[in-house]
Each structure stands twice: as structure tokens, then as C-alpha cells.
Amino acid sequence: MGIRTLAILIGVLLTSASSAQEVGDAAAGEAVFKKCITCHAVGDNARNKVGPVLNGVVGRTAGTFPEFRYSEAMVKAGEGGLTWTPENLAKYLHSPKELVPGNKMSFAGLKEQADIDNVIAYLATMPATPQ
């Protein structure tokens, strides 16, 4: 193996290790999610509340959960291609009004990156549809 190939391999491994560290802790995220349960539901028998059910939100197009009345801003964001990737969820959870101006979520956002990472990890464990 040449030095260049070895350097590329080391770079890939370091990038993968860095990404793995940024994933978050689902158990800690469950505790953070308690800030969200007034408006959102997850898990078995979850139903829309003031906000939509968040089962399967990771990877979902914005503004598309069935039978929830989204703001026009959120529907347009989804139609414009906004998908709830972990990166977009992190931006939204930090500042909902900044990522989707005009959305109706009144929550100001989470300020700690660890809390954001953890709640995303928790949401990623939810099934795509309520049971």
C-alpha cells in the first residue's frame, strides 16, 4: 500500500469516527424530548396534537404527515425539497423560525448541540408510522 492510499484510508477512518461521535444518545434524547411532548407525540398509538406525530420524521419530507394541518410555510418548504435529514432537523431544532420562516411552531429552539443531537437520535428510533 502506497503512502497516498494509506493517507486516504486514514482520512476516511477519521471522518467516519467523527461522524459516529456526532450521532447522539437516544436515551438522553428521550429525556430532552420531554420538552416537546406538550405539542408532539411519538411511539405506539401516537396521534397528532398541536404539532404532528414525529414517528418516522427522520428522512420525511417537511409538511407531509397525514391528517395534520401544516402552515403554508411548512408545506411550501416541503414542496421546495426540504427533507428532515439529521442536518436539517438540527438546524430546525436550533431555530425553527430561521429555517422555515412563517411556520407555526412556537418553540424557540434547543440551544445545546448535545440536546439537539440526542433528540434526533431518539427520533430516529421511532417507527415510520404509529402502531
Rank of each mutant, 00 (worst) to 15 (best):
K35S: 08
P127E: 07
G78R: 02
D44W: 01
I3A: 11
A77C: 08
A7E: 09
M105F: 08
T15D: 12
H40G: 03
N103I: 02
A41M: 08
N103T: 04
I120L: 04
L110E: 07
T85H: 10
P101R: 06
T38W: 10
S71N: 14
L54H: 07
L54P: 05
G29P: 04
A121I: 06
G56E: 02
Y122Q: 08
L14N: 02
H40E: 03
D44Y: 04
A20R: 01
M126I: 04
S18D: 00
G43K: 11
C36R: 06
D25F: 14
T125I: 06
L13T: 10
P66L: 01
A114M: 00
F33W: 08
E72W: 01
I10Q: 01
A77R: 06
A128S: 03
D115A: 09
V12I: 15
G81E: 03
S18K: 05
P130E: 10
F107E: 00
D25W: 13
G56D: 02
E87F: 02
A73F: 06
T38M: 09
A108V: 05
K104C: 00
V57A: 07
A121R: 06
L13N: 08
A7W: 10
V32Q: 03
G51Q: 02
P86S: 06
A46K: 11
T85S: 15
K34I: 09
K104Q: 10
E87C: 03
K76Y: 03
Q131H: 11
D117Q: 15
S71E: 10
V53W: 07
G29M: 03
E22L: 11
S18N: 01
A26R: 00
T61L: 14
A20F: 01
I120E: 04
M74L: 08
T38K: 10
A41W: 00
N88E: 00
Q21I: 12
G2W: 11
Y70G: 11
K104A: 12
F107H: 13
I37N: 13
L9C: 12
A128H: 01
T5P: 01
V100I: 15
I116C: 03
N103L: 07
A124C: 09
L13R: 07
D25L: 12
L93Q: 00
D25P: 05
K76Q: 12
V42Q: 12
A121M: 08
S106G: 13
S16P: 00
T85Y: 05
N55H: 02
G11L: 13
N88T: 02
R60V: 06
